[in-house]
């Protein structure tokens, strides 16, 4: 840079550092950048410079002009805010919060269903769906539930008409799939189910279940245990323990309820697990021969297992949610947490 320009720059920096008011800065601006200002004067000298140096010279003037403009801008902004000491450089505060674009979330129930689907897809299970408004046949008869079973009453099942109801379990999909398809079968069926329970922290007249079914030749209880073991390890974690307890369901035999070690207290005992160290997460069992009979499968040739679990329940366990109603209130402050 030529000497004159360097001088100008030095003067400018001195002057801008002693500027105290917006009026001062305005005067400074006029002095250097005005139509008759110092920079303008230099511009006028360009044609007088030898042709081969003209470009560089012009560039230097321009750079200087940009520099001055930018500095005057900074100081003007600072002075109009009036907060920051004028002699120090503005703080670029990297600790200020970022500007977040809005991001939505899938409902926690969808997230759980997706996780369950994903875990079972890796074990070769397809996803199947069935109607929510169902024939009594699929919800009860074909599932070996006796005609006088209490679950068939008005107190436990919503009815539309005589033999048409709102399914009270996703096990209905087992029958619909087996009616259409020959073994081997490997499906899970997520969906909404309905029971006339008065709504409170633990009960909801609508909730979600996932049903699983595997039928083939030579399928045994050990397979059931291992498949559920794989799922539990995937979904709840490698350290989680599993326990099978005998239970009773009309459509499986032998039937089991499956517990996992309580994730809250790691099995030591707490209020979530009623101080037992275990929490029940699903029901399962070997498909009852009566069910195979209903779908015209040869119960001697084929064996299989089925399982079912409540999506809300495992979601509540996983996240420590204590009130099932939260899922259906759809408070954004709730939904945004997952």
């Amino acid at each position: 840079m030529i000497k004159e320009l360097e001088e100008v720059k030095k003067d400018f920096l001195n002057e801008i550092n002693s500027v105290a008011t917006l009026k001062d800065i305005e005067q400074l601006k006029i002095k250097y950048l005005g139509r008759k200002g110092i920079i303008s004067d230099f511009m006028k000298t360009i044609p007088t410079v030898p042709a081969e140096q003209r470009a560089t010279y012009g560039l230097q003037i321009n750079t200087l002009k940009n520099e001055f403009t930018s500095l005057i801008g900074d100081v003007t902004r600072r002075l109009s805010r009036g907060a920051i000491p004028r002699t120090e450089k503005e703080l670029f505060d990297i600790t200020l919060p970022g500007k977040q674009p809005p991001l939505g979330k899938k409902h926690p129930i969808t997230q759980t269903i997706d996780d369950v689907k994903e875990a079972f897809a890796r074990l070769g299970f397809d996803v199947a769906y069935g109607p929510e408004v169902e024939l009594e046949y699929y919800n009860f008869d074909a599932l070996n539930i006796p005609s006088d079973h209490p679950s068939r009453t008005d107190f436990d099942t919503f009815y539309i008409k005589n033999d048409i109801l709102l399914r009270s379990q996703t096990s209905t999909v087992q029958i619909r799939i087996m009616e259409k398809q020959k073994p081997p079968i490997r499906i899970i069926a997520p969906g909404r189910v309905y029971r006339p329970d008065t709504v409170d922290a633990r009960h909801s007249f609508m909730f979600h279940q996932v049903e699983g079914l595997l039928v083939d030749e030579g399928v045994s209880f050990t397979d059931l245990k291992e498949v559920l073991n794989q799922f539990i390890k995937t979904y709840f974690g490698k350290d989680v323990q599993m326990r099978f307890r005998p239970s009773f369901f009309p459509f499986t035999e032998p039937s089991a309820e499956v517990d996992i070690s309580c994730s809250i207290c790691s099995g030591k005992g707490c209020s979530v697990c009623s101080y037992s160290g275990w929490v029940e997460i699903l029901g399962a069992g070997m498909v009852d021969p009566h069910v195979f009979k209903a779908v015209h499968y040869d119960a001697e040739k084929y064996t299989g297992f089925a399982f079912g679990m409540g999506i809300e329940r495992i979601t509540m366990l996983k996240y420590g949610i204590d009130d099932i109603r939260l899922f259906y209130e759809n408070d954004i402050r709730f939904l945004s947490q997952f």
Partner: peptide, 18 residues
């Protein structure tokens, strides 16, 4: 559909069928 909408800042909700 879910991915698009959540990416655009929409929250998925679930409400009663009844």
């Amino acid at each position: 559909i879910r991915q698009c909408l959540t990416g655009l800042g929409f929250y998925e909700i679930k409400t009663y069928s009844i």
